[in-house]
Amino acid sequence: MKSSNQQPATSIEINNLCVSVAGKEILKGINLSVKSGELHAIMGRNGSGKSTLSNVIAGREMYEITDGEILFNGENIADWSPEKRACEGIFLSFQYPTVIPGVNNMTFLQAAVNSVRKYHGKEEFDAFDFLEIIKEKLQKVGLDERFIHRAVNEGFSGGEKKRNEILQLMMLEPKLAILDETDSGLDIDALKIVSEGVNSLRNSERSFILITHYQRMLNYIQPDFVHVLIDGKIVKSGGPELSQKLEDEGYSWVSNDEC
């Protein structure tokens, strides 16, 4: 329970969102409201539209919004570039983080953090200060220092890539973090480290949307709400108990309800 009487502000509000990719309708009227400090889990099978939802919030250009709106802190973000969304505080942890040969991880992270700082009129970090800050965060995600001196995600294992995403999340300190199947490709130790990282970032100002196929990450990260996405629509919403039921009984009982 919140100790304050004040209602928390709405972080992101999605109203009747319909999205097409290459002429095919993927999202068919999504409604979702996430308040500051809340963590919502969205569960669904492959092909239900989970990744489309996360990518469209982050501003990927190949997705066409055919109807509805996304409001972030009350503002319609339809015309915002991906970089503006990031600077305003939207962060997407990629399901498949991109490998970028030739660009040093540290150069990339410093450019990212400084771009966001500059946007907010804050002083940019020099390389020395930045290294000090990042060293501390590296420890938290269980990566050693040589990872930031390698090319972005190049030669990283699946788990290392995901930890690198959480490292970026820690460095950028967004208002809304979307974790797109962050649990996939993680062994149990990495899953614990990543979950602890996420839990340490939870506070009353920051909201999370955790997109997953499985219950397993939700054993470590307690959601406030769970939604079930089937065929581009949220067909059921509930508390944490919903994810357990899905784990035990599969998705069919939800879809049967619908039919």
């Binding site: 990927r60 570039s81 600077c87 030739g102 660009v103 771009s115």
Partner: peptide
């Protein structure tokens, strides 16, 4: 897109990627 989704402007992202290629 990966770079832009981290707040880096399109122009800076291009420059980083070109430098990476030349690196």
């Amino acid at each position: 897109f990966y770079f832009r989704s981290r707040g880096i402007s399109e122009k800076d992202a291009l420059q980083l990627l070109i430098s990476g290629f030349a690196g």
